[in-house]
Design a protein around this nucleic acid. Structure first.
Lengths: 131, 131
DNA sequence: CTTGACTCCGTACTATGGTACGCACTTTAT
DNA sequence: ATAAAGTGCGTACCATAGTACGGAGTCAAG
């Protein structure tokens, strides 16, 4: 007997996370724990989709707490709040992106003249971030 | 008697961090603790510069551990290693930036048709990150 | 000259996001 | 049919980056 869904191991692998991480998300209420028909729990496509959503949302900088909220919001009808969370995240994402862009530029400038200079002066890295 | 340097409070304020954070950095070996002439420790420009460097480097995504290494490297002569750390960070920064850019796009697309749609369907946020 | 703010230092506690461990099953491959 | 691999659960532990607390001493302004 097999194809009535993924085992936790397969689910985890499909989303490229560890089994322990899946269990952790369950404990945190981000992923629900399916009933067990036999002795082993089986996960369907929806669970995989949700797990993947969690990871994508994390990449967008949402905390697990926020993600939990988004998930409940998705099930309910408080559209407004989800929109709000998304807007906040969007603007913080923009802020973070330009911050990182600036950091990137400083760092690449450093790499530039670190590469051509010999090995004399005190390393320019401390100076690299000075405005 | 005053202007022989900043007090810890002034130092912290000048770098926009908390006093406890400064002490934490000292404990972690990122910032050294100056000798005390009287009963209070005084911090000079170099300390402020270093503290600011720590924050900038954090923005670039370096961990405190790496920053500690960069600082010792700056004092010493292992240019090579500093260059290596910077290169690694640079490429991870690039990776992270495009990841966030992608997340940003998904999110803004969502905000778009979340704004125009009414409040019917299940909120599109779960779908927003699907490739 | 005292009251409130600041400092010093040590230690404890926090949040976030996991990872590991142990033990008792249950599958599955050999 | 037996050993290796996987599952279920509960609990413990981890790193990272701080933040808070308490008590004793010090300094500056009214």
């Amino acid at each position: 007997m097999s194809e009535q869904g993924l085992t936790i191991g397969k689910l985890a692998a499909a989303a490229d996370v560890g089994v322990e991480t899946v269990r952790y998300y369950q404990r945190e209420g981000l992923l629900d724990t399916p009933e067990k028909n036999d002795s082993i729990r089986r996960y369907d496509k929806a669970a995989l989709r949700q797990l993947r959503f969690i990871r994508k949302a994390q990449e967008a900088g949402f905390t697990l707490k926020e993600i939990r909220e988004l998930i409940t919001l998705d099930a309910g009808e408080d559209h407004q709040r989800a929109f709000e969370l998304a807007s906040i995240r969007l603007s913080e994402l923009d802020k973070k992106i330009s911050e990182m862009q600036r950091a990137r530029d400083s760092l690449s400038k450093l790499a530039q003249h670190c590469a051509c200079a010999g090995k004399s002066q005190p390393c320019a890295i401390l100076a690299a971030f000075e405005d």
